[in-house]
Design a binder for these strands. Structure first.
Lengths: 209, 209
DNA sequence: CTAACGTTTGTCCAACCGGTCAAAAATTTG
DNA sequence: CAAATTTTTGACCGGTTGGACAAACGTTAG
């Protein structure tokens, strides 16, 4: 197998970027099967055969998009480090994840779509690379628990809960904005969410004493 | 407008149930556009024209499914009541939601699919019925905060976080099982999740003192 | 200029998909 | 039973979709 990237002209690089950007928009709102090559081509400002000159199959676009996504998507977790104060580390992990939901909602939805449908294309990666990474970070968290820096609990489910609460603001954005209404559903909702999540994860709901 | 339900024969009722059950399976894993009438018909054990005799359009099936879903889906929140101890009420709301994720994962995924795609078919309901219900319950929670029964925080985001963390175990089930691995990803994962969530929502991560 | 190479387009196709229709089969009703 | 009604089926249709292809167009290098 040849792992080297194919040589590409300047035009090819630019057009491929254009297509991927358009495809991200279309796939993330319609899902894979719900999106058509024509839609992507139009969003990218080119004809369908022209698009197929750069990506020979619809699936190739999706696959390329997915590979790129996964790298950046797990970056915040990779940064979770053993140096520094545990509570501060966790707090900034939550903050980073929430910022990703705010700044890259389309990527979040693309990922959610894939998982919802049973992750047919990335299951191996979930069971391999992702599991390894999470296990590794769970061990770090367990160390913090042993040291009494944070409460003893299940590190895996802790990570799940951080994923769930932060990605919720990207994946369920329509619902969040609908429920908050016009006045509170504006740009401030991410700051409100950040404040709430910090409080929840650090102190919970039970009053002191 | 005639709001009365059409008269139906015994066969019609049974077959319609069969179709809805099959459609729930298919729609929840492939999304609306990703599902074909043929798939649903085959899953229901009948021919496509036969299915179309009971539901004249693909959309009618989805709509019927959606209406039923919404009633039961919000039942746990409706039960959240002002009588009884606030912390107990919240704890059992979380437990009920988690049980729904465990027992009705397809319904959860169907709903998630709809929201992910921008809720084209149920946006009015989100902005109307749902918002009203959530606002009402947020007021109840605010009362608990004023009474010092739970910590002061944002009730809307609190509700979001409960939705997010519990539905995560249905919508992202593949990922959860992949990360937990064969040994911990079995049936016990919901009990582990319940324990973790209770601890998180009540006490947070910060050690006492 | 011209040959080689990279890019774009129009046309076409086979498969699929949602839905129709008439006629056959099964069931209910009198 | 027979008539009326409901259910099931096979054949069919028009529109869409992913993708192929050759020809035209543009660009670059000798």
């Amino acid at each position: 197998m040849d792992g080297s990237a194919p040589r590409r002209t300047r035009i090819q690089q630019e057009k491929r970027e254009l297509i991927l950007e358009a495809a991200l928009e279309v796939f993330s709102t319609n899902g894979f099967r719900g999106s058509t090559i024509d839609q992507i081509a139009e969003a990218a400002g080119m004809s369908k055969p022209n698009l197929l000159y750069y990506f020979r199959r619809k699936e190739d676009i999706h696959e390329t998009l997915m590979q790129r996504l996964l790298d950046t998507w797990l970056a915040p977790l990779r940064e979770l480090d053993d140096i520094g104060d545990p509570l501060t580390e966790l707090r900034s992990y939550i903050r980073r994840k929430l910022e990703m939901a705010r700044d890259f909602p389309r990527e979040s939805r693309l990922f959610a779509n894939e998982i919802l449908q049973g992750a047919p294309r990335i299951k191996p990666m979930l069971e391999g690379e992702l599991k390894t990474l999470v296990d590794e970070k769970a061990a770090v968290i367990k160390g913090w628990m042993r040291a009494g820096k944070i409460v003893r609990t299940d590190p895996w489910h802790l990570i799940f809960s951080i994923w769930a609460t932060t990605q919720h603001y990207a994946d369920f954005d329509v619902q969040v904005r609908a429920v908050l209404g016009a006045d509170r559903g504006g740009d401030g909702r991410f700051e409100d969410a950040a404040r709430f999540l910090e409080q929840l994860f650090l102190d919970g709901l039970k009053p002191k004493g």
